[in-house]
Amino acid sequence: MTGTRRPYVRPVDFKAGLVDMSHGSGGRAMAQLIDELFVEAFDNAWLREMNDQARLPMPPGRLVVATDSHVVSPLFFPGGDIGCLSVHGTVNDVAMAGARPLYLTAGFILEEGYPLADLRRIVRSMAAAAREAGVPIVTGDTKVVEKGKGDGVFINTTGIGVVPEGIEISGDRARPGDAILVSGTLGDHGVAIMSLRENLAFETTIASDTAALHGLVAAMLASVPGIRCLRDPTRGGLATTLNEIARQSGVGMRLEEDSIPVRAEVAAACEFLGLDPLYVANEGKLVAICDPGDCGRLLEAMRAHPLGRDAARVGEVVEDPHHFVQMRTGFGGSRMVDWLAGEQLPRIC
């Protein structure tokens, strides 16, 4: 579309309008919604071409692709909403390979009857997050399901990036002796979401930590190109992420409970909900594993970045044929930090 667009009699009613089946029909109503909502918000050269796909230039390096579907409930929460979360989540998955995220795609599944005003808030939040991250949303898709068959809005995003030769970050590269670092306080996102759930609403000042981490990763790689593993501890929290890496790398881990950063408010909320902050989801934190000789420099680089201010070394990789993650408790004993069993908090992202 060029400057002479809007061949529609009336603009989309973003005040009182609701999503209806025609918005996913492929007809004029859908074209208008795409035009007046998505293209306007995400605005870039590829979208303006109005093709069913985007043709993209690729810089040299290896292609990195990640996809993530977002079904968080509620859709709006302290510190964010499903829109910015769907950008951050996928940007982070790409960035955890040490890659520079370049493009995003977005697929929406909308429920009939969902207010267009809320949809616009979500889309604008998504656009702002993409712009801030410097990663354009270059193609997308919209489907509408009947009322009762969805839950307002589901968003799938796919991210594409490149990782230069020489950067080898993978979950199977942790070696005994390596240092384990986290970029900040744990459990903020999960507790912020829980505070809104209808059956346990409690008042809190905790906001989700949702954020795009590729800037932090770039700063870390500039300082220590030899980082071995990076992962964002989302669902299942730090405990699950470390167990995944331990299994992939065939190693064990030993943590120091006292060195793991957790906000007092989060610890308090977990205490009365019977949760363990090590298992609660994060959306703006990462775990890094590096050679112990690089640990000091890496920690310094992380703390110099606004998203890594509270970074800390929380433990070390050890030899263990059982691939157990163990922890020395603040109390002075030892225990395992096992895989998450069952479902601690459903629909958290």
Partner: peptide
């Protein structure tokens, strides 16, 4: 019998002796 596939109730609750030992202490008996 594990927390994912419990056969008995002691493996279900976090207060159960089996779940507590499995989750926090099984490295001791491995």
């Amino acid at each position: 019998c594990t927390p994912e596939t419990p056969i008995g109730s002691c493996m279900v609750s976090s207060e159960g002796a089996c779940a507590a030992h499995y989750t926090y202490g099984r490295y001791r008996s491995a």
